[in-house]
Design a protein around this nucleic acid. Structure first.
Length: 572
RNA sequence: GCGCCCAUAGCUCAGCUGGAUAGAGUCGCGCACUACGAAUGCGAAGGUCGGGGGUUCGAAUCCCUCUGGGCGCACCA
C-alpha cells in the first residue's frame, strides 16, 4: 500500500529547502476536521529560517503543489498547507490493499523475527482467579498478539506465583486444619480457606508466621514432604486456571513460574556477591540502592531463604541466556513499579547492557464499590462468574432478537466473553477503575458487542450481495471507485487506511486500547456509511465497488478484534 | 516524610513527542425500522481541560508550584 504521508513528504521536500523527508513526515498532521483536508502542513516553524510570514510560506508551497496528480486540491488556510488527496486514487489503493492482504492487512515484518518475551497473567497458585487478574491476562495477551502480528518471534510466559512464604502458610494451615478430600473436591476454594484461616489464627499466634517461613525454607531446600504437598496444590490450582484460560482463548508457551528458578538462587546470589553488590543488614542480604534514590532491595532473608526479587533477577538472566530476547516485557500492576525499578537497576549494576531491554508495562488498580479487593476478606469478584454471566446475558439477547445463528452457544460465548475483554482494553491501561456489573454487562455504545455487531452486519450485507464476495475481491482493481468516493465512504476508507500505523503505535506504546479505540471509530464510520448509502443497488458496477469497501471494513474490524484476543462472529 | 501515577462534559473516558472552533460514549430530551441486521443512525443540550504562575507566534499537551485522590517505601508477592 502506498504510504501517502511519505509520498507527500517527498513532494513537499522538493519545494521546501533545508528540510529532510523525515522532518517533514514529523511535521505533517491530519487536520481536526476533514473539510480542512486529508493532510496538513503547518508553516509556523519555517518563518524564522525563511524570514517570511507563515501564511506567505504556506501560500508559496500550496501553489507549487497545485496540479500534482495525487492531489484533488491544495489550499493555504491560516498558514497551513491543506492537502486533499485524489479520492479515487486513495480509495483504490486502500481497497485493493485489503483485498490482497485479507487477514494479514495491518501486519508487518518490521519485527524481523526478533525475540520478544511477554510475561503476563501470572496468578498466584491456590488463590482464586478474580477480576483483578483480568488486566494482566488480557492486556498481556493483546500485546503478544500485536507483536506477533508485527513479525516478532514471541514467547508467552505465565510466571506463576507458585513459590514463596505463602506456601509455607498454606502447608502449615493444611497440616493443622485441612484434609485431603476437601482439596481434591474443590481445590482453590479450599486452599483459599486455609490461607484465610492461617491469617486469622496468626493474629493471635504470631509464631505461626515463623513456622510458615520455616516450612518455606524446607520447601526451598527440597524436603520431600513439603515438596509433595506443594506440587499437589500447584497441580490442582493449575487445572482451575486452565479452565478460565480456555474460556478466554488464551494460551502460554511456558508456565515457568517462580518455583522454576528455585535451583538458580545460589547462582544469582553468588553473582551479586562477586559483583560486590551484596551487603549484610540486620542479618539479611541486601543491595543498597541509595545512590540511585531507591530503598534497598532484599535479596535473602535472615534465615537464608529468598524473596521474589531474587527470583525475578534470576528469571531475567535465565531468559536472556535461554531466549536471547530483543525485548523482555512484563505486564504487571503499577503497584510493583518500585520493585521493577529496583531489579532492573540491579541487572544494570551487574553490568548487563540488556537491562534496557527489560520493560515493565504497568497498569492501574481494579477495585470494587465496597473498596479494594481483598482475597483474605472475601471481597472478590470471580472472573469465571463475570464471564459466565456475560455469556448468559448474551444468550438472552440473541434469543430476544430472534436472529438466526448457526450455533447459539458458540456465538454467545464469543460475544459475551468478547464484551468483557473489550471493556478491559478500552481505556488506557494506567487508569484505575472500579468494577461494576452494570458496566460490564452493558452492550450498547462503545462496546465489544457493538463492534462485533457491526462486523456481523457487514457480513450480512456481503452474503446478500449476490455475486460471491470472493469474486468481487479477486477483481478489486477493476472496480469503479467513483462510487466509493463520497464523504462517508471516504471517511471510512481513511480510517481503514490508518489501521497499520495504529498497530505500530499501539506496539510502541504497549497500549492495546489504541487498537480498541480505532476499531470503534471504524465501526462508527461504517455504520454511518451504511445509513447514508444504499449498498445493494441494482447497478452492478456501483454495488461491486461498495461491497469492496464493506469487505475492507469487515476484514479490518476482524483483524483488529483478533489483536485484542476476540473473535468476530458472522452472525449474532 | 520520600518516590511514582492520576485529575478533561452530570457519569465513564479519548486527545498529552505543543498547532486550526477540545472530541466520543453514556444519562436525560426530540426524531428515524415498507432499502442491505434498530446490539443501529440523526439532532439539540452539555466544558474556568483541578487552581495559580512560567516557556512559546501558539499550551489540555512542556516546566515550576499548590490542591485533591491512588499506589509504593526491609525479611509477603
Amino acid at each position: 500500500m502506498i504510504n501517502f504521508k511519505e509520498k507527500i513528504a517527498e513532494i513537499l521536500a522538493s519545494s521546501i529547502e533545508g528540510l529532510s523527508i523525515e522532518e517533514i513526515i514529523d511535521m505533517l498532521e491530519i487536520p481536526t476536521e476533514s473539510k480542512m483536508g486529508d493532510y496538513a502542513f503547518p508553516c509556523f516553524k519555517l518563518a524564522k529560517v525563511l524570514r517570511k510570514a507563515p501564511p506567505m510560506i504556506a501560500q508559496g508551497i500550496a501553489e507549487k503543489l497545485q496540479g500534482n496528480e495525487i492531489f484533488e486540491k491544495v489550499e493555504n488556510v491560516n498558514a497551513y498547507v491543506n492537502m486533499f488527496l485524489s479520492r479515487k486514487v486513495f480509495v483504490r489503493e486502500l481497497v485493493c490493499a485489503v483485498a490482497a492482504d485479507k487477514e494479514c492487512f495491518g501486519s508487518s515484518d518490521i519485527g524481523q523475527n526478533r525475540k520478544v518475551v511477554v510475561e503476563f497473567s501470572s496468578p498466584n497458585i491456590a488463590k482464586p482467579f478474580h477480576i483483578g487478574h483480568i488486566r494482566s491476562t488480557v492486556i498481556g495477551n493483546s500485546i503478544y498478539k500485536i507483536y506477533d502480528f508485527l513479525g516478532y518471534n514471541t514467547v508467552r510466559i505465565n510466571h506463576l506465583g507458585d513459590y514463596g512464604t505463602q506456601f509455607g502458610k498454606m502447608i502449615v494451615s493444611y497440616r493443622r486444619w485441612g484434609n485431603e478430600e476437601d482439596v481434591t473436591r474443590e481445590p482453590i476454594k479450599t486452599l483459599l480457606s486455609y490461607y484465610v484461616k492461617f491469617h486469622e489464627e496468626a493474629e493471635n499466634d504470631p509464631s505461626l508466621e515463623d513456622e510458615a517461613r520455616d516450612v518455606f525454607t524446607k520447601l526451598e531446600n527440597g524436603e520431600q514432604e513439603e515438596t509433595r504437598l506443594w506440587q499437589w496444590f500447584r497441580d490442582e490450582s493449575l487445572k482451575e486456571f486452565t479452565r478460565v484460560y480456555q474460556m478466554l482463548g488464551i494460551e502460554f508457551d511456558s508456565y515457568a513460574g517462580e518455583s522454576f528458578y528455585s535451583d538458580k538462587m545460589d547462582w544469582i546470589v553468588d553473582m551479586l556477591k562477586d559483583a560486590k553488590l551484596l551487603k549484610e543488614s540486620e542479618g539479611a542480604q541486601i543491595v543498597d540502592l541509595e545512590e540511585h534514590n531507591m530503598s534497598p532491595a532484599l535479596i535473602t532473608k535472615k534465615d537464608g531463604s529468598t524473596l521474589y526479587i531474587t527470583r525475578d533477577i534470576a528469571a531475567a538472566v535465565y531468559r536472556k541466556n535461554h531466549y536471547d530476547f530483543y525485548k523482555n516485557l512484563y505486564i504487571v500492576a503499577s503497584q510493583q513499579n518500585l520493585h521493577f525499578q529496583q531489579w532492573i537497576k540491579i541487572i544494570e549494576l551487574l553490568g548487563f547492557d540488556w537491562a534496557r531491554d527489560c520493560v515493565h508495562i504497568p497498569f492501574g488498580l481494579v477495585s470494587l464499590e465496597e473498596g479494594t479487593m481483598s482475597t483474605r476478606h472475601g471481597r472478590v469478584v470471580f472472573l469465571e462468574e463475570v464471564l459466565t454471566r456475560a455469556v448468559n446475558q448474551t444468550k438472552e439477547i440473541i434469543l430476544q432478537k430472534n436472529v438466526n445463528t448457526d450455533n447459539l452457544d458458540a456465538t454467545a460465548r464469543q460475544v459475551g466473553i468478547g464484551a468483557v475483554i473489550f471493556q478491559e482494553l478500552s481505556n488506557n491501561r494506567i487508569k484505575d477503575y472500579v468494577f461494576s456489573w452494570d458496566k460490564v454487562l452493558n452492550f450498547e455504545g462503545e462496546t465489544g458487542p457493538y463492534v462485533q455487531y457491526t462486523h456481523a452486519r457487514a457480513a450480512s450485507v456481503l452474503r446478500n450481495g449476490g455475486d460471491s464476495a470472493n469474486q468481487i475481491i479477486a477483481s478489486a482493481d477493476q472496480a469503479n471507485m467513483d462510487f466509493i468516493a463520497g464523504d462517508s465512504a471516504y471517511e471510512l476508507a481513511k480510517l481503514i487506511y490508518r489501521f497499520p500505523e495504529i498497530i505500530l503505535d499501539a506496539a510502541e506504546k504497549y497500549e492495546p486500547s489504541i487498537v480498541t479505540r480505532h476499531i470503534v471509530n471504524i465501526a462508527q464510520s461504517f455504520n454511518k456509511f451504511y445509513h447514508d448509502e444504499h449498498i445493494l443497488v441494482k447497478n452492478e458496477e456501483e454495488k461491486k465497488a461498495k461491497l469492496l469497501l464493506v469487505y475492507a471494513a469487515k476484514q479490518t474490524i476482524k483483524n483488529g478484534l483478533a489483536l485484542l484476543g476476540m473473535e468476530a462472529p458472522e452472525r449474532m
